[in-house]
Design a binder for these strands. Structure first.
Lengths: 159, 159
DNA sequence: GCATATAAGTCAACATGACTGACTTAAAAT
DNA sequence: ATTTTAAGTCAGTCATGTTGACTTATATGC
């Protein structure tokens, strides 16, 4: 495994450096999601509900199709959690004015309360990490994760 | 949401900056795992098999208890995938010499072949991202993710 | 206006991966 | 000899993902 040089790129990466990067992502995701999972379970919800709630909160009035694109799951999978969230009064649905086939999703007051609670937990964790790592590191974190993401979805992060 | 200053910490973080950090992690994890999932499904395996294979490869001779600590799942969940991997000849088990209750796990040649294939996919993705982001960014990525991880597990990354 | 395409929802069936709690077995430690 | 530990197992449950086929309503293009 003692790789030698490989081309003009000055950035030489050993396997163990790459594995460290892989494992950091695994452990961070594991711990990042665990906290909210605990809150959600007290509502009888799971991670799938959280994802729906989260992205509806970011884009009030998002359509079902748009949400499916973000989550990359099947209509059936989303429909299960979505109809549960609507039935229990966390999410409201209204027909779009221009295209009345589209159903636009919004959080109700009850939904917003839950969303705030969950987002506070996550903002606290990432905020603490950002502060511990420092401003320079944040930019690096963003750059690397953005490059990991499929090219088609990177445009979601233009500011 | 136009927060004003908050204390002596010079690093001021707006909600939308934190949400960007949260979403980067979501999309990156989604895309990072998707590629391997496709390979695994051709073997009739899932993500859980991959995680076992991956960490056995990193620590040949790891015990079941150690693996459970890393994955933070129940014995039953691990046992299902592990016994499947052993039955199909991807993982071998031997009793520890000193403590014969402990079962030490190793990849077989067949298991190593699969592991190499999966790791190559992941190393390529993270390697490309590292190169695209640059050496400085890598350090930032590491710092932030390390701070997201539960304190008890950070020691896994001392070099 | 009619044919086609699209957005959404639904039904049935299934796989995977997580969980709990209780129990067994073997071996180590006290 | 008793207790603790490591591992495995049994039985049942739940959440979240999948597929494929079908319906309904609406929009769009000819």
């Amino acid at each position: 495994m003692t790789d030698l040089k490989s081309g003009p790129n000055p950035l030489f990466l050993r396997h163990d450096q790459l594995h460290q990067g892989i494992e950091l992502l695994f452990y961070a995701y594991r711990d990042f999601t665990a906290e909210c999972d605990a809150v959600l379970s007290t509502y009888g919800f799971g991670r799938a509900h959280h994802r729906a709630i989260y992205f509806i909160a970011r884009s009030p009035g998002i359509s079902v199709a748009e949400l499916l694109e973000i989550l990359r799951i099947t209509k059936q999978s989303l429909s299960r959690v979505l109809s549960q969230l609507v039935r229990e009064g966390f999410v409201s649905v209204e027909k779009a004015q221009t295209d009345r086939r589209r159903r636009l999703l919004r959080l109700t007051d009850k939904g917003e309360k839950l969303e705030k609670r969950l987002s506070e937990v996550q903002r606290a964790r990432i905020g603490d990490a950002y502060r511990a790592a420092g401003g320079n590191a944040i930019e690096g974190y963003r750059k690397v994760l953005l490059s990991i993401i499929d090219e088609t979805d990177r445009k979601r992060f233009v500011e």
